[in-house]
Nucleic acid binder design. Sequence first.
DNA 1: GTAACTTAGTTTTTTCTTTTTACTAAGTGG
DNA 2: CCACTTAGTAAAAAGAAAAAACTAAGTTAC
Lengths: 400, 400
Amino acid sequence: MSSSHQPHRAGDLLFLKRLNRSTILELVRRTPGLTRADIATQAQLTKATVGGGVQSLLEQGWLCEGELQKSSGGRPGRALHLNEQRFAMLGAEVGVHGLRLVACTPSGRVLESLNERLPLSSPEVAAERLAELLQTLMQSPSLDGYHLLGTGIALPGPVAPEDAILRVAPNLGWREVRFLDLLHAHLPRQDTIWVMENEAKSAAFGELYFRTGSIPASLVYISAGTGIGSGMVEGNRLPLLSRGHQGLAGEIGHTVLQPGGLYCHCGNRGCAETLVSGWSIRAALGINEEEDLIEAIQPRLQEPQVQLTLRRAGEALGALILNLHHTQNPSEIVLGGSLVRLGGPFLEPALAYFRDNQARLLSDSRPVPLRVIEDATLVAARGAAAQVLANVIHGSNELL
Amino acid sequence: MSSSHQPHRAGDLLFLKRLNRSTILELVRRTPGLTRADIATQAQLTKATVGGGVQSLLEQGWLCEGELQKSSGGRPGRALHLNEQRFAMLGAEVGVHGLRLVACTPSGRVLESLNERLPLSSPEVAAERLAELLQTLMQSPSLDGYHLLGTGIALPGPVAPEDAILRVAPNLGWREVRFLDLLHAHLPRQDTIWVMENEAKSAAFGELYFRTGSIPASLVYISAGTGIGSGMVEGNRLPLLSRGHQGLAGEIGHTVLQPGGLYCHCGNRGCAETLVSGWSIRAALGINEEEDLIEAIQPRLQEPQVQLTLRRAGEALGALILNLHHTQNPSEIVLGGSLVRLGGPFLEPALAYFRDNQARLLSDSRPVPLRVIEDATLVAARGAAAQVLANVIHGSNELL
DNA sequence: GTAACTTAGTTTTTTCTTTTTACTAAGTGG
DNA sequence: CCACTTAGTAAAAAGAAAAAACTAAGTTAC
């Protein structure tokens, strides 16, 4: 969301100060254990400036001091870490089959989570229930003493940038929903940050943002569930989400993969979702909406028709991944979503297709890493929480 | 190339000063005729700061003062413009069929251009000839009195970010070419900026960067010629090119559009280029490499086979554009390249496909603007020059 | 015509943040 | 134990933008 459509920020001294504070905090966040001297080197600031900045970040409770580092012939520096006891963010995902909530620390550690199945319902009902669960989560004992920075909401559909409107959620049957407004009817804003973003984009953000050590320059998260979506985040200094003009960036489920192919829900023909998605697999195998897809397929895995369907779907997913490779070319690809649980018969063809074809153009010896997340339950909710933190650290608010 | 892999820049006072100078220059560049007061409002700086910044930019020759604005009940402000007499950038495109060179002013006005056909040749030969032509261009009388900021080179293939290596140029048969090094064997660096980038990405950059007035938040340029490539540029403050991890971002010609389809040059099956590209159309219609594609087709436009081929290719292009819409979702799409000259029989199906299908997901009343560039001869070269200027204004060099 | 008002831009002083410089702290190695 | 190295702090200096006061140059009301 970030909003703030002002193209240029004021370049005053306060801005400079905050920029340096945010730089320091960001460096420690990425590589825990840094000393003041390390920061001075990496940020190209003087020791004095870093010392002052660290001082104020310690006082505000963002950082805490750790052990003395090993010395290499001089006074040892003192390690700095994110303070894990002071601030927390909430994140929630509104999914097709339920609500997932997390509370996590600035390093991404999950303090508490909730997972509730909820049948398909109206935006109003979902918002009311989510508000209740958020209240519950906030009062959880494991959050005692934490100052809550804000709440991020992940939704299964394109969210218009700047507007905080969920444009459409095909699998929920929602359209043009101002979900945050609905939520605030039951839960006060309370001067904290509220972020609302697409589910796959949130997941992508969290997967990159909470990484420490060697951080990929860019990352694509593919969310394969009832529908198929993706999100891309990149940028070295501040991680930026590719949202697109109308929030449609990453809607790979509706890229054409077979011109003149089957009709898709969206009305076009040959969309990727007609080949690979929860709903297309259900349709091909005659599995009811009420049944759990995975549970229904598990006992039928030996049937040739099931195997063929899964292989075809997997190959289509492989082509989709390859297409992302050739349009966005991320440094890393992460695959999550409920379809991952279909396992080898579905995943192997996908991975094989990408593995065999990704080096067609470039004979690059180092293939792009592709990681499969077995349990992606909390990924999107956690990523929504991540965006709250990023908003605080990089945003123009007064919290830092 | 931008390079400078340092993740964080020093936040000292000089940095702040340069940031504000660059902000001022950027604002005037985007909306010529701004007054100091306008800038102060938009940049959220005080009149005094803007006054000082403008002063130094006037002295350095970046800006010049224009007419008095109309007054609305007070002292009229003085319009500021880019100085078009002082600085210039060179840009060149190495294409499959020849070399194109331009010299242009900071506003993008072309001072001089060269266009030379060159048969397919080695990187060394091309570099030597390009060096000669650059020399010629630099000595052109219309560049008298101009200070040259640098030179940008656009190449028909993926360029690795940070490395200045052309990874591969399929239609030239080149691989792993350090083109700038070859060029510098014949032409000294001379303390100016050198930029090397993919051709479609360069074009995209130039199309966005030289725009004034209402500037789209993001733009995709599609280059449809012998092969098909694209480039995306976005970002409000400083325009950022999506390069991708290995420079493969935008290689839409090798996205799979028909799994199990025809074999592509790259070895994979069903790539978009097997359906729409200069080479696939030649193959379908039996047109020799030596003939000019457009000239060969023109007299045969009434043949049903030609019409069918062009329509099929156009529809594939339409699907490609729709796929970009659903993966990148740019605010604007620009279509250029030699295939544009095929005209209606090719373009109409493409535009119709995109027009009819782009609102499937969102019933957005305002469709994404799609502009066709009739004569894209100089677009990539000009865009390469644009990157030089952007490097000066936003980069960390001392020129500002 | 002129005084009141409005807006543009500059000059001067003040404020604030970083750097510079000098210093203290705390380890290693001969 | 003493030189040496590196980490971090403190006080003085430099430099940038802000704030306030000012001049400049138009319009509007009467």
